[in-house]
Amino acid sequence: MIETRNLVKTFRDGDVETKVLKGIDFRAENGQFIVIMGRSGSGKSTFLYQMSLLDEPTSGQIIIDGRNTHDMSAEEKILFRLTQCGYVFQDYALLPELTALENVVLPLLMQNVKNKNAYATAKEALTKVGLSHRFNNVPSHLSGGEQQRVSIARAIAHKPKILFADEPTANLDNESSKAIIAIFKELHKEGQTIIMVTHEDQYAIMAEKIIKLDDGKIVSEIKN
């Protein structure tokens, strides 16, 4: 369903060129829960950003459902991210002046879902992550774990094809992290495709497949 072929990403700073991804071939099937691991600087987050269309690779191909994303216009990529992808970031990435409910409903409204349906769906997603009592709280009035759950609710409310998560537990305490991973497991059980970057082994073992990156290359693929 999502495939990368010889994916290369190079950063240039003046005359200095840094090759972060050095030709990655990767494939994830529908409904899989894949974890990408690696030490700092191995290129795991960069790899996730390329796959999730947040960044443009230097060369290589990304094919999602048979479509080469290189052929998509900027506008099509935005629409694709809106409708087909869900994102969970390490620092939650919530809009501070919006309540939990408003943060979740915003992408739905952008998809032109009618107000009534959008709010009902957003409430459903927040309830699913255990935040039915926090609809009207702004992020600053929520704990880190609750903010990350709002972020997950925002990512899954529109039922995306792929859920991308970049170190979702890195800023959380152990208990909150377990709660977040439990939600991911539940989503996976329901058939959600998840690609998650993490450096924590205890959560990685819950995935179906673990990809290890080192120096911009896949060094191992472990099936759990």
């Binding site: 935005i78 991210r81 809106l82 992808c85 809009l95 992408p107 952008m110 925002r154």
Partner: peptide
């Protein structure tokens, strides 16, 4: 973030 989650520029 807004652009990232698909909000039109």
């Amino acid at each position: 973030i807004l652009k990232g989650i698909g909000i039109n520029g």
